[in-house]
Amino acid sequence: MHIVVCAKQIPDPETPPSAFKIDAATNKVVPAQGIAPVLSQFDAIAAEAALRIKEAGGEGKVTVISMGAESAQAAIKQVLAMGADEGVLLNDPAFEDGDSHTTAKVLASAIQKLGDVDAVFCGRQAADWDMGQVGLLIAEILDWPVATIAKGASLEGETLSVERVLADGFETVQVPFPAVVTVSNEFGEPRYPKLPQIMAAAKKTVTQMKAGDLGLDPSEVGKAGSRLQLQKLFIPEKGAQVEFIAGDTPQEQAAALVSKLRADKLI
């Protein structure tokens, strides 16, 4: 059993709002001072799910793949420390500023290059853009079945049994290998790495691949290959101050609050 975990390094989602800044000229988030990027939490959970399957099966291999800059090594090392066996960094300036489609293309190419992969585990979405597309697109590109938003996954004979979160409960699906699974936070907390594994991970070499290694032309990846085009990234106007709901009676207050919430499309 060879499972690939796709991991993304993202700006810390817990950056305090006051430190969250956007450069309007480039439509990019300005890295906050002293706040390092982190591994997207959903991807850490996906790694946890993959590792549990490997451990339940007794043998196998987990490879973590990340597309990103050199700094994404940290995210890869984190998954290696959790117990993954190998790491691959897809680092090429040509990959930058792509959309879900180009990202999935790069990742799927790498998975195909690895060759013997039985399953791909992704987070349900990256915790920065929250799109939730890449896992599904990898499945489409590879023409593998996919089970999304998993809160549980286990081996059942030759197939994978996945519990999926639905709006009104959950369902259990069976998926033949090879397959793609996207994992949700309901799965549970990712493990805390053991120090011996942290040390082992620190010593591991991460394989680096570029567009050429994957047989990809720079024109079909990154910004050049994107179909979804970002026009503007901005911080929405916020009422800086609390707005106290006026009203002489609780009924008046309630009515005023409900109309505000409806206007905001919150209810």
């Binding site: 700006p11 950056t15 853009w129 979804l228 970002l230 990234l233 901005f234 911080i235 929405p236």
Partner: peptide, 20 residues
């Protein structure tokens, strides 16, 4: 057509166009 959606945990909003 412009598509606007929240990003970065609600800290930001992003507006997109789709060429295809």
């Amino acid at each position: 057509l412009q598509f606007t959606r929240p990003a970065y945990g609600g800290n930001a909003q992003a507006t997109y166009t789709i060429a295809t």
